[in-house]
């Protein structure tokens, strides 16, 4: 019991990302409204971003901008003092990708609406089946 509790508390960030990701996945699969699906898609991508950013955290470390960089005296820089910059770099890319996907998805949703005059998937499918 204690092990499980410790597991839950030690890794709470990871549990949150899994929850978010599952919410997004469920919305994509089960929701009927196309815009809700797009929102679900965005939640899914954000969950992955949360996961990556969680990897970068180090206890007792600060933001990865080297202090006193230009005041002459050369301090020894220790990696443990700064958080891991790599996941942040990767997620900057992933954020941009998710914004781009969101934009294109919204545009295509507009196109769909212009063609079928609804965003409810079952109504669209009904229109397609009986033209």
């Amino acid at each position: 019991m204690e092990d499980i509790l410790r597991l839950i508390i030690e890794k709470y960030n990871y549990w949150i990302y899994i929850t978010l990701m599952m919410i997004g996945l469920y919305a994509i699969i089960a929701k009927n409204n196309l815009v809700k699906k797009i929102v679900g898609m965005n939640i899914l991508q954000t969950a992955v971003i949360l996961f990556f950013v969680s990897i970068g955290v180090k206890r007792g470390a600060t933001v990865p901008i080297i202090e006193h960089a230009h005041d002459g005296a050369h301090h020894a820089i220790r990696a443990a003092e700064y958080i891991n910059p790599l996941p942040h770099v990767l997620m900057l890319t992933a954020i941009v990708v998710s914004v781009a996907t969101l934009g294109v998805a919204l545009v295509i949703a507009i196109k769909t609406y212009q063609r079928f005059l609804t965003l409810e998937e079952d109504e669209i499918l009904k229109q397609i089946r009986e033209p």
């Binding site: 030690e10 990897i55 180090k58 206890r59 990865p64 820089i77 990696a79 700064y82 891991n84 910059p85």
Partner: peptide, 23 residues
């Protein structure tokens, strides 16, 4: 997730292999 290194651990592999050089 059960096998993940503990959250915020400075000794996790992700913090020890590539990233120290960057910093």
């Amino acid at each position: 997730t059960v096998d993940f290194p503990p959250f915020a651990d400075p000794e996790s592999p992700a913090s020890l292999h590539v990233s120290p050089r960057y910093i």
